[in-house]
Design a protein around this nucleic acid. Structure first.
Length: 314
DNA sequence: AATAGGCCCAACCGCCAGTTG
DNA sequence: ACAACTGGCGGTTGGGCCTAT
């Protein structure tokens, strides 16, 4: 018959993750890697369903996540990709290393949508809103956001529309990117709209193909093999997420951040054994995470082996 | 200072696609 | 070919935090 739920719902915990649960999950994955999610909770001693573990890991605990607000550059990318892909957040996220679909989706819903509307652009169709003058960037609040949205049933622009949408995107880009270069390098040359494309066929951009960054030269164009690793000393003033309020009172990714883990694609092999063991110890031995983390002695490069230079906010 | 309302985001839910036996 | 299963995706929700009154 129909599918069974991913886990028996009885006796399983829901809601915000606790420090203890995070600890178990991290510890387990560090030790065993990501195995079958369904059996993971049992093996890790968690009263969660596998799906919940996967989400917690992929959206929050993964060490390769960038935290904090999307940069202007990332935001523009999201807008442009959304114009082409619609609400395919995972696809969009695949173009933004270190960002999750959930994060992008949230950011879209909370920030970008509003921004676009203020600019007189319909966030769904990426076309000018009917009643508002568009190109003058008048910051005019749309009175009935919800209605507006509901009255526009098509979630994804049609293929023929996509080309038109490019105009808008161009406007967006040019309005805040130092103009000429943006055009020349054609941020999305590799995704140049071809009416023959089905949106599914929009070619994925490999990180090394992303060659826009016209106004953010410090943003590295990363290929895994190009990752520039430098020794790092954790800074006391965490530049991390502005969102101080994690629902889970404790965020183990803070620990990871504190440790300045390299933000590369997740792979156990990257972790040098000593470091991995140290982290392991840290995780399993700490009754109080904060107490354990904060007094870390000044690291030597071997203790904190690497940190990818990804500091695009600078 | 209290509180109402809005904002933000982690987490959940239900569905779908792909895989396996 | 089919059912069972897993992983993944997108939409939605709930609760904590922030801000305006």
């Amino acid at each position: 018959m129909g599918r069974q739920p991913c886990c028996e719902k009885v006796g399983l915990k829901k809601g915000p993750w606790t420090a203890e649960e995070d600890k178990k999950l991290i510890n387990f994955i560090l030790t065993n890697g990501q195995c079958c999610w369904r059996s993971l909770p049992k093996l890790a001693g968690l009263l969660r369903c596998g799906k919940s573990c996967r989400l917690r890991w992929t959206n929050y605990l993964r060490p390769d996540l960038k935290r904090g607000l999307l940069s202007e550059y990332e935001e523009k990318m999201v807008i442009d990709l959304h114009a082409q892909l619609g609400n395919r957040w995972s696809k969009i996220a695949s173009h933004l290393p270190g960002r999750t679909d959930n994060e992008i989706k949230n950011h879209w819903n909370t920030h970008i949508k509003k921004k676009l509307r203020k600019m007189g652009i319909d966030p769904l169709t990426h076309k000018p809103l009917p009643t508002t003058p568009t190109h003058d960037h008048q910051f005019q609040q749309q009175p009935h956001d919800q209605q507006q949205e509901q009255s526009l049933p098509e979630p994804v622009p049609s293929l023929s529309e996509v080309g038109q949408n490019r105009e808008i995107e161009t406007i967006l880009f040019e309005s805040s990117i130092t103009d000429t270069e943006a055009k020349e390098e054609g941020p999305f040359d590799s995704m140049e709209i071809n009416n023959g494309f089905c949106t599914d066929e929009v070619p994925l951009i490999e990180p090394h193909e992303i060659n826009l960054v016209p106004c953010v030269p410090s943003v590295p164009l990363i290929e895994p093999h190009e990752i520039n690793l430098v020794p790092c000393v954790p800074s006391s003033s965490s530049s991390s997420s502005s969102s101080s309020s994690s629902s889970s009172h404790f965020s183990s990714s803070n620990i990871l951040e504190e440790l300045e883990l390299p933000t590369f694609e997740w792979g156990m092999d990257f972790w040098d054994d000593d470091f991995s063991n140290a982290l392991d110890l840290l995780i399993s031995g700490a009754d109080n995470w904060n107490a354990t983390v904060e007094p870390l002695p000044p690291p030597t490069p071997t203790q904190y082996p690497t940190r990818m230079v990804l500091d695009q906010e600078s």
